[in-house]
Design a binder for these strands. Structure first.
Length: 438
RNA sequence: GCCCUCAUCGUCUAGCGGCUAGGACGGGGCCCUCUCAAGGCCCAAACAGGGGUUCGAUUCCCCUUGAGGGCACCA
């Protein structure tokens, strides 16, 4: 069999949303699975609603998701151009052929296509045999002379030698129009695969651009890990048929196939997405994690334009990586590492001061600091255990007041890691200040 | 209204005639522990309803109901 050619054909009329992303993903997966070609074709025939800004969003989102295209805008290919606004000559030729075939007529200045009245049969790779009879003649060229979606979509699939049309189920009922056009143009039908829709999390209907969590750009801004979002999207309508859920892309590429796609719509679940994202965050390699998070902190202007010391920043990030569920939780979690001006949680203070002698413990720690080894968590743990043993106290008697003094909050990363990363200077300075004011 | 599609825990799903109906998220509990997360263990939670076919239906067929989509000079 000849090479598989699939296309993702978005229209730059709004921000790139999650349903489009999954359609792109499934096309990409099928192309990679079969060693085929993934085409990006921009359907910008609606001059009123298109914009260059939305076009950039499509490119950026696809790149961020890692869905590289083999043919398309910015990339080229033998079947270009890949923006429909630049393919007027090709449409004119095909329109002329349809006119010559006697299947068209004019009405109110528009060009209509006369349907055959025959039942249209499509063999869908996901749904099986679907029959539908198109009932009305339909417009193929507007009165302003521009061709409409149904026409250009089919013409381009023919011209670009598309073998498989993988798209949302919302196109299933339109497919009878398309098969009529394929036949009228004397072209063989592609294999169709209509994938189920993503339903909005709350309320009725499919997810739309206005729904919470619908926009890819938003996940990008919020510091989601692209591989996690893609993994989650794979699970919406497809599964590896065993109990695995966290899967590397090359594994999905190996297993993915059209018959394995589900037939029923899937409801979007932000909690599950958060979970997958957390798993990816915790599994991220140190170098990548440090870069990724540093980039995120910069994007939210966490340092207010100032440049942090990169070695220290890296240590802070890696210390906190396993402690947060998402990158976007980090700014609220690491503030005290970069400023001495942090508030002391009054409730935590009250609780800690309600028993024992926290000031005595802090003084002992402060006194031990100059001679202590701050180079490893293990050394610091030994230090605290030594102090506890020497002063007839528990390690907790040091840890809780010290954490509060050093960070202002009762929650945070591993205590020994906290000491190590802050370093001797900051630890000593913060404890003495706390003792002086508390 | 007409046409098309779909139907397993709250959600995402496994199951393709015989299973104690499995996993994951979320929820509840316990454990671990320097806090909080994370992690480990346990619990609750589903075959929409009715007819067939069959020795036997979650699984195959039909109907009902429910959900979703399409019926534009939008894509």
């Amino acid at each position: 069999m000849s090479q598989v050619r699939v296309r993702f054909a978005p229209s730059p009329t709004g921000f790139f949303h999650i349903g489009s992303a999954r359609t792109a993903l499934f096309n990409w997966l099928y192309a990679r699975h079969t060693g085929g070609v993934f085409i990006l074709r921009v359907e910008d025939t609606d001059k009123e609603r298109n914009s260059d800004e939305f076009l950039r969003v499509i490119y950026d989102s696809l790149r961020w998701l890692g869905l590289d295209w083999d043919e398309g805008p910015l990339k080229g290919g033998a079947f270009g151009p890949y923006r429909q606004s630049e393919r007027g000559d090709i449409y004119r030729d095909h329109i002329a052929r349809l006119k010559a075939s006697g299947r068209t007529y004019e009405k109110d200045g528009a060009l209509l296509f006369r349907i055959s009245g025959e039942p249209q049969v499509i063999e869908d790779a996901i749904r099986g045999r679907v029959e539908r009879t198109e009932e009305k003649d339909f417009v193929i060229v507007r009165k302003d002379g521009s061709p409409v979606f149904h026409l250009v979509n089919v013409v381009d699939d023919i011209a670009m030698k598309v073998t498989h049309v993988i798209r949302g189920e919302d196109h299933l009922s339109n497919t009878s129009k398309h098969t009529e056009l394929f036949k009228a143009l004397g072209a063989p039908l592609p294999i169709y695969a209509h994938i189920p829709l993503i339903l909005k999390q709350n309320g009725p209907g499919k997810m739309s651009k206005r729904d919470q969590g619908a926009l890819i750009e938003e996940y990008q801004k919020r510091g989601f890990i692209p591989e996690a979002l893609v993994n989650f999207l794979c699970l919406l309508g497809w599964s590896p048929k065993d109990d695995r859920e966290i899967l590397a892309m090359d594994e999905v590429v190996k297993l993915f196939d059209l018959p394995g796609i589900n037939q029923s719509n899937a409801r979007f679940d932000e909690k599950k997405l958060s979970h997958v994202n957390m798993v990816y965050l915790h599994a991220m390699q140190p170098d990548r994690c440090a870069d990724f998070v540093a980039g995120y902190l910069k994007s939210v202007d966490f340092f207010k334009g100032a440049a942090p010391e990169t070695g220290y920043l890296r240590e802070v990030i890696l210390l906190c990586q396993p402690k947060v569920r998402a990158v976007e939780d980090l700014p609220g979690f690491i503030g005290y590492f970069f400023s001495d001006d942090y508030p002391i949680d009054p409730k935590a203070k009250e609780k800690i001061f309600s028993k024992g002698d926290p000031k005595a413990r802090l003084s002992e720690l402060l006194a031990a600091a100059p001679g202590a080894d701050f180079s490893s968590d293990a050394a610091l743990e030994a230090l605290i255990q030594g102090l506890a043993a020497a002063n007839n106290a528990s390690t907790g008697d040091y840890i809780h007041p010290a954490r509060l003094a050093l960070s202002g909050t009762p929650v945070g990363p591993s205590f020994y890691g906290l000491l190590r990363v802050l370093g001797r200077e900051r630890v000593a300075q913060r404890i003495s200040r706390f003792l002086a004011t508390a």
